[in-house]
Design a protein around this nucleic acid. Structure first.
Lengths: 198, 198
DNA sequence: GCAATAATCAAACAAACGTTTGTTTTTGAG
DNA sequence: CTCAAAAACAAACGTTTGTTTGATTATTGC
């Protein structure tokens, strides 16, 4: 009854394999498949492992009672960068913080959109061709914000600036000119983040 | 026997509900739960629906034979992107509604670590001071890969290159010099992604 | 409107699921 | 080393799964 469910050292390592499996197949393995995967010979052992991971918030149950990833399932370890040579810490709780990339990058999911970048006009600010920017859709921005504006029915990513009383769009690439729209233009949203995959 | 499996008009609509379910729970519902979800009274009907969606590449089977999302599951319909009148976007967008940024950036969770970047030595490749890089921890890399190496007990992010028979570390900033280590150095991991939050 | 075809339903089914139970092995304190 | 507690194992269990089968209802062409 009163199962203490103390955390086992190796649980996190096992969790790692479940994360790998999920990253590959977008699905969690059945208990019998976990036996092969984790080299555990009894389903009861799996059952207890899963119970512990559920308690810790790494796993949970979907409405149909199937096993599904919990919130913490997508946590990533964040190195504190002062770690040095000999320190090959694969351990979970030492010297690192944990965060989920999504929560870190997306603060207002309901108004957030991902937009692929085409072109090099912002390369000096580290926004390259084929990157993806995270955009909060809203029609206003502050000076200095990187915005997605609609100019001539096209999306454009530039820094919002002001010359005298006129708003301008400033590229971050010396080969491009500052855009000085004659008419008021529409701000589609504000860039709040950026990512890239190699 | 010879089941033609012609595509039904409504299949895509049903698929939509499965996508919503998956987006919420990171798991696909069982056939019986799909019955409730899709208002279908027979499991056989579900079975055929799933078969068609599998043929179309929206669903597939994981190694344990469980149902899992296929490649096309995360495609985003074109109509979503053409919302803006006339707005021209490169509309190839890997279903950002259903796939998280995390899943896009992290392929091998168990060996992946996030490392904050300090310094400008890679700025020409769009990796700036205070960015975060996604690193697959492993001691080998290919020429041209961006690697995290350990030099003088410090982490360094550079492109792996070769001069004659010696491996070198190439910065992406003209103010920095190519590092030509006298002794073999350790590769801590390979950079597989990068992100930044404003 | 009627027949042929396809789709859905409903029930029965074996196979696989995860839980439960009792036993064996491992661990760790005295 | 001995013994008690914890963990892992192995087998049996009732459920639930997805498939199969045959009956019923909707479509469609003539």
């Amino acid at each position: 009854m009163t199962d203490f469910n103390e955390v086992h050292e190796s649980d996190i390592e096992k969790l790692g394999q479940l994360r790998d499996y999920f990253a590959t197949h977008r699905s969690l393995p059945s208990y019998s498949y976990m036996q092969q995967l984790l080299h555990i010979k009894s389903k009861e052992t799996i059952s207890k492992l899963v119970a512990r991971l559920k308690l810790m918030g790494f796993l949970e149950s979907a409405p149909d009672k199937k096993l599904s990833p919990g919130k913490r399932f997508f946590e990533r370890s964040l190195s504190n960068n002062t770690v040095q040579a000999g320190a090959f810490t694969a351990s979970y709780n030492e010297g690192s913080d944990y965060m989920t990339i999504d929560e870190h990058l997306v603060r207002k999911p309901s108004i957030t959109e991902l937009i692929p970048v085409a072109g090099d006009s912002m390369k000096d600010l580290g926004i390259l061709d084929r990157d993806t920017v995270i955009v909060e859709k809203r029609p206003y921005a502050n000076l200095g914000d990187i915005v997605v504006a609609i100019i001539d029915d096209k999306f454009t990513i530039k820094t919002l600036g002001k010359e005298k009383s006129l708003f301008v769009l400033i590229p971050a690439n010396k080969d491009f000119e500052i855009i000085r729209p004659k008419e008021p233009f529409i701000i589609y949203g504000v860039v709040t983040g950026q990512f890239r995959s190699y």
